[in-house]
């Protein structure tokens, strides 16, 4: 097992066929921190905590199908990317599909890595946008409340936690995250 200093994006692979799920998981080793689930129900349990960034979801599973899992994720307002794994290739782009990307079985070793890294990047930038908004808000509140009162201020604590969580996710999703975050921090906004 590899222990690396840089945090990796978290991926969950869901396929009722252990052989398939395990094969993908090994392919993504080193690129992601990978978990596997061999059924829809288990997948939903694993998705509760901690936060998963990318889900590779087999569409056709007995019992709870990939589409069922997807519907549940929508209900929970899952904040991550879903790559659907299907058996057929209709040759469509995914712009108006209910998932973020799809791959057709059998998946080429490189395809799965490229698709996952693309989605990591897309998610990373989306979260970066959210982070910028949250961080600006935090700074506005920070400017208004004296330093020793902030710890007791609910609104401030909440936005601060949100900022920390987003920062952590962005770090593992984007290679150039350090530079991006630094550049954002360097801009003086308080105007004083």
């Amino acid at each position: 097992m590899t222990e690396t200093a840089t945090p990796l994006p978290r991926a969950l692979i869901v396929d009722d066929e252990k052989e398939v799920a395990d094969a993908y998981a090994l392919r993504l080793r080193g690129q992601c921190d990978v978990q596997t689930a061999y059924g829809g129900q288990t997948a939903l349990e694993l998705l509760d905590e901690p936060v998963v960034d990318i889900v590779l979801l087999d569409r056709h599973m007995p019992g709870m199908s990939g589409d069922d899992v997807l519907a549940k994720l929508d209900e929970r307002e899952f904040c991550g990317k879903v790559i659907m794994v299907t058996a057929i290739d209709p040759g469509f782009d995914v712009l108006d599909m209910p998932f973020d990307d799809y791959l057709c079985k059998p998946i080429d070793r490189e395809d799965v890595r490229v698709a996952v890294s693309q989605q990591c990047e897309v998610l990373g930038y989306e979260l970066l946008g959210e982070y910028f908004t949250a961080e600006s808000k935090r700074r506005v509140i920070a400017a208004e409340i004296p330093g020793d009162e902030r710890a007791d201020h609910d609104g401030y604590r909440e936005v601060e936690q949100e900022c920390d969580a987003l920062r952590e996710r962005i770090r593992r999703l984007l290679d150039e995250s350090a530079a991006l975050l630094e550049a954002f921090d360097a801009v003086g906004r308080e105007g004083r």
Partner: peptide, 19 residues
């Protein structure tokens, strides 16, 4: 359904999206 060309594409698209 998804890759049967005899079916109109809008239907195939929707069928694929609906699973």
């Amino acid at each position: 359904i998804g890759d049967d060309e005899r079916v109109a594409e809008p239907i195939r698209r929707a069928a694929f999206a609906d699973g």
